[in-house]
Design a protein around this nucleic acid. Structure first.
Length: 423
RNA sequence: GUGGCCUUAGCUCAACAGGCAGAGCAUCGGAUUGUGGCUCCGAAGGUUACGGGUUCGAAACCCGUAGGCCACCCCA
């Protein structure tokens, strides 16, 4: 039993070998798709100033209000004692980098992607961790609406390529600086007349961030049904934008439903919002990813007015869905064990090297154990083949198929390579 | 941050109403001196999550703490 004080911090997990193939698969598909959609990889720090997240996500967002994972600074200068926080999401940092490096002068729109850990100080549960991993894509400088649909289509393609069935996009439009103020007032007026039917949280948010009252799952269904809908308050430009997004999604065959209660009620979030849900995990952590347009964010953080849109997909939950649906994983390349009980060990390493030279995965057994033990160990390690090195010239070896048990003797290395490559 | 359930070997779980902590699987070794899987034999593996309390005696009962899960909250 491990020392209880020396365990992984609450809400964090170790990635163990048995889960690695799932992560490899999800990350590989994400990176390959990002490349195929014209995205370039970026990396940003795991921590930033608290103020960046406070402004980038909004003071009233849960991520800032109660889930910020603060990092205590060092002693010393003001700089060293600045307030830091582990990143709860990547968009603020990427936009910060966009501004800091003057990327608005680059030929745009820019397509940026990253994969990495995010941190939220929340109470852990299955599918909800304090450290979790997101695949993120951002398009900066493209006003849409085509790119809005393209990103939703990209999300769908990601889940489909992984073999996850039953993913649905929920989409909404929350307008922009032109039309949202009036919508916001309409919500305040409507809910203010029914405050006795609101939860405490919703009452508090009513004036701070009225759109988020719609988020409240305890919202009286009758009250919710009668609430003003953002799509009915869109200005002409926002309505045209949203209608085009929906039309493109239909044309692309992307499963989606309009969810009038899907909101991101901060001033710099604009127009298109969307989240990806998977069937069969209702009531659990069933949101696999989400994103939206943030046409006001670059300017808010000090850059030139620049539209932007992106999404973050949670790989932890994606992998839980893959495992729940038992999606097939591609077979790994065959592993070859090199064993032998009569050589001095050098021959085994030289044979292993010769096979590695041509790209074959090799697990040599350098031990002095009996040959039977070496083969047993190789099978348990997942080896598909065993190359048995004997006495005499190391160019002549035996190749044993560990699945069928068949063995061919007296082969040279090229013959071994040819046989292995057929699997 | 609120409420509930849970925690015994690496894993899955036993252990009467409080009386010597066990099994299966996995691991390692032997039977088998250069050929795995089946079988048989053996070994190792425990501060019963942690800390207190009650008791002649606690894995079990009580309190606290930590962690996991579930429902909230929210989201990824």
């Amino acid at each position: 039993m491990a020392d209880p004080k020396l365990t992984a911090p609450r809400g964090t997990r170790d990635l163990l070998p048995e889960d690695a193939p799932w992560w490899e698969r999800a990350e590989t598909v994400a990176r390959e798709l990002a490349h195929r959609y014209g995205f370039s990889r970026v990396e940003i720090p795991l921590f930033e100033r608290v103020e960046l997240f406070a402004r980038g996500l909004g003071e009233s967002s849960d991520a800032v209000e109660k889930e910020m994972f603060r990092v205590s600074g060092a002693r010393g200068s003001d700089e060293e004692r600045a307030e830091w926080a582990l990143r709860p999401e990547p968009t603020a940092g990427i936009v910060r980098a966009f501004i800091e490096h003057g990327m608005h002068v680059r030929p745009g729109p820019l397509r940026l992607t990253t994969i990495g850990p995010m941190f939220r100080y929340d109470r852990p549960q299955a599918g909800r961790y304090r450290q979790f991993t997101q695949w993120d894509v951002e398009v900066i400088g493209d006003p849409g609406p085509a790119v809005d649909a393209e990103l939703i289509e990209l999300g769908h393609r990601f889940y489909r390529d992984l073999g996850i069935a039953g993913v649905e996009a929920r989409v909404n439009s929350i307008g922009d600086a032109t039309c949202r103020p009036a919508y916001r007032e309409a919500l305040v007026t409507y809910f203010a007349a029914h405050t006795e039917r609101l939860t405490d949280d919703s009452r508090r948010r009513l004036h701070l961030n009225p759109l988020r009252v719609l988020d409240d799952r305890h919202l009286d269904p009758e009250l919710a049904a009668g609430a003003p809908r953002s799509v009915d308050h869109l200005c002409d430009a926002c309505r045209a934008h949203f209608e085009t997004v929906l039309r493109l999604l239909d044309a692309l065959g992307c499963a989606h439903v309009v969810d009038h209660r899907l909101v991101r009620g901060l001033d710099y979030y604009t127009r298109t919002s969307f989240e990806f849900y998977v069937a069969g995990r209702e009531g659990q952590q069933d949101a696999l990813g989400g994103g939206g347009r943030y046409d006001g964010l670059v300017e808010l953080l000090g850059g030139p007015p620049t539209p932007g849109i992106g999404f973050g997909i949670g790989l932890d939950r994606t992998i839980l869905a893959m495992q729940a649906q038992a999606v097939p994983l591609p077979a790994p390349p065959p592993l070859v064990a090199v064993v032998g009980a009569t050589d001095d060990g050098v021959a085994r390493l030289r044979v292993a090297g010769a096979l590695r030279d041509v790209g074959i995965a090799v697990r040599p057994d350098g031990s002095a154990r009996k040959l039977g033990k070496q083969i047993e160990s190789a099978v348990k390690a997942g080896a598909r083949w065993a190359v048995i090195v004997g006495e005499g010239e190391l160019e002549r070896v035996a190749l044993k198929d560990l699945a069928s048990g068949e063995q061919r003797d007296d082969l040279d290395i090229p013959a071994v390579v040819a046989a292995v490559r057929l699997t």
